[in-house]
Structures are given as C-alpha cells and as structure tokens.
C-alpha cells in the first residue's frame, strides 16, 4: 500500500477514527517486512498487538474442580458433626437435685448466719491488704500538696 495512504490511516488511527478493517490494513502493513524507515517506530506497537492476540492461559480451566464447593461440603460435614456432638453431650449427666436442705427454720437461720459471718470475715482479712494504700497516699501528699 502507498506510504501516504498508510500515514493518513495512522493519523486517523490515533484519533480513534479508523474502522476495524482499516486497522487490519495497518496491522498487515506493520507486521510485514516492508516498512518504511520513517514509520519503523510504530512497528513494535502493531507487532505487540498481534502477538498479544494469541496469548492463552497455560493452566487448563476445568469446571469440575471447584474449590468453593469443596469448602462448602467440609463446612456441612463439620456442622453436622457439631450438632450431633452437642446433642449427645447435653443429654449425658443428670444434675443432682439434693442440695442438703434443712427442715428446721432455726437451724437454717444459724447455718445462714455462720456462712455470712465467714464471708464477712474473709472480706475483712482481704481489706487489711488495702492498708498499704494509705501509705501511698501519705507519700504522695508529701510531694503534692
């Protein structure tokens, strides 16, 4: 094809106004042997385009091998196992209802008092440890008034 024609097409090409068939002409021209030295610089562009149009994936793409559905079935299996496990463990031990109840209210009162006393005694013992906090307070007051 004439050189001036190619140049015109190139100009149109960069304006985005060429048709597919005109672009095909350009591609044929530039991938051929006989490219004018002035236009040599555009050669890699069109060569690249035709090279890229043949690229294909190397890995075979399959439909059966579905990673997601694999996870899916594992998930279902796990949840069934969990449900079954819960069902069996929950029904196993019967709670003991004998809590050692007192029949006589007097004794019950005494026992309750004893327990409450014990609790308050432990509480007081625990509070003794807090005396040190007072020391901190004193020291702090020495510096910050």
């Amino acid at each position: 094809m004439e050189l001036s024609n190619i140049e015109k097409l190139l100009e149109k090409y960069f304006e985005g106004e060429t048709t597919i068939s005109e672009e095909e002409k350009l591609k044929v021209y530039f991938t051929g042997e006989d490219v004018s030295p002035d236009l040599e610089k555009y050669k890699p562009l069109f060569e690249y385009f035709s090279q890229e149009s043949t690229v294909a994936p190397t890995r075979n793409i399959t439909l059966k091998k579905n990673r997601k559905s694999w996870y899916y079935s594992i998930g279902i299996a796990a949840s069934i196992a969990l449900a079954v496990g819960l069902f069996f463990t929950k029904t196993a031990p019967e709670p003991n209802h004998d809590l050692g109840t007192y029949d006589d209210p007097e004794i019950a009162l005494e026992e309750t008092k004893k327990i409450l006393n014990m609790v308050s005694q432990y509480m007081n013992e625990g509070k003794e440890g807090l005396v040190y906090l007072k020391e901190f307070e004193n020291t702090k007051n020495k510096f910050i008034k």
Partner: peptide, 24 residues
Amino acid sequence: FKDKLFRLAKRLLVSNEEAEDATQ
C-alpha cells in the same frame, strides 16, 4: 471466547496466575 476473557483479565490484573483464577 475463553482466551479473550483471559487476555482481558491479564491486561487488567497483569499477573498470569490472577488472570487464570479470574477466567476460571
């Protein structure tokens, strides 16, 4: 058109592996 999908994905994602994943 499978290869076309792959090439578009490769153009956008650049990496070969990612493009294959995308096509799949």
